[in-house]
Design a protein around this nucleic acid. Structure first.
Ligand code: FES
Ligand code: FES
Lengths: 163, 163
DNA sequence: GGATATCGGACTAAATAGGTCCTGTAAATA
DNA sequence: TATTTACAGGACCTATTTAGTCCGATATCC
């Protein structure tokens, strides 16, 4: 129903946790599962996917574990989502041309592409650093929403969170 | 996979078709299915959902059918999506508080809310009139993307479409 | 009254997501 | 070297959701 899967949500929680405790040593899967209160096998599965996508680096053997591959502010949300559930695309046709019977006669194809682009851009601007609480504010807090002004309240709450 | 369901996509295609032929008489389900090249039972199901949500008005009996309840520029995309697949929310927690075990300790809950708000706002700005080709340009063409400038190409193509 | 077309929901089948478990392999340690 | 630890990669099963079909009831027009 137009939402990210629970696995992805979990994955981002784990990533945020890793971003939060900015120590260099790697955390193993069991430990991360405990910290985030999530089922261990699931966390393990998620970690493997994230590693394969190049968002985490893994260290095998005893004292092994996972750690962030990059700085949190260089990991956009869209990349985490992509890693865990494939390419982001509002509609099927957005990703895979030719999947649709209409295609040629379809009126809404092009507009969907633009909508998709807008959402994609929004998810690209937001990084893991924005999700994790900035306990060490060395870098500036990047504004979350990249939309131009509208009168809904979330932008207000965002502005409040900034100051 | 972070996309709208195929049914919803179909539904919007049908709505766009209805918006395109701006005659006042209602179109029946069979006719709409033919025009859009979609399976008739599916179209029928979609039409019922859209009617229940108040986006279409139906007329029973012979010469019956469906027509738009409002002007296309007063039907936002988000409403069509909501009608066909429930409330728009990126994460489960965004919609239903208490579904998550963490909830209290969760770091990412609030940022997700803001992301969700941004996407929601984007889908609210885009209306059915933007999706259907403006064959009768009495009203101005409303810009699709409501995000502030970024360097990806879709905004460029959008700007090109405007002028 | 008969033809037409929506209404509402039940129903089945297919696809996807969620979750578990097992075998192999790399690294550290004793 | 032997042992322990912990990731890698799948196979696998189950639950849930989605897609699609169908039918009896009801409303409208002629
Ligand atoms: S719905 Fe697939 S191309 Fe338009
Ligand atoms: S993941 Fe559910 S409240 Fe944070």
């Amino acid at each position: 129903m137009f939402r990210i899967s629970r696995l992805t949500d979990y994955g981002i929680v784990v990533m945020a946790h890793l971003a939060e405790c900015r120590d260099d040593d790697s955390h193993n899967a069991r430990e991360l599962a405990e910290d985030t209160q999530l089922p261990a096998p699931v966390v393990s599965k998620i970690l493997k996917s994230l590693t394969r996508a190049g968002l985490l680096v893994s260290q095998r053997g005893s004292k092994g574990g996972y750690s962030l591959a990059r700085s949190p502010d260089e990991i956009p949300v869209v990349e985490m989502i992509t890693a865990l559930e494939g390419p982001v695309g509002i509609t099927e046709c957005t990703i895979q041309p030719g999947a649709c019977a209409q295609e040629s006669s379809c009126q809404v194809r092009d507009p969907w592409h633009r909508i998709n682009g807008a959402v994609h851009a929004a998810l690209e601007k937001i990084t893991l650093a924005d999700l994790a609480k900035p306990i060490d504010p060395t870098g500036p807090f990047i504004p979350l929403v990249g939309m131009d002004g509208d009168e809904t309240d979330h932008t207000a709450s965002n502005a409040k969170a900034l100051e």
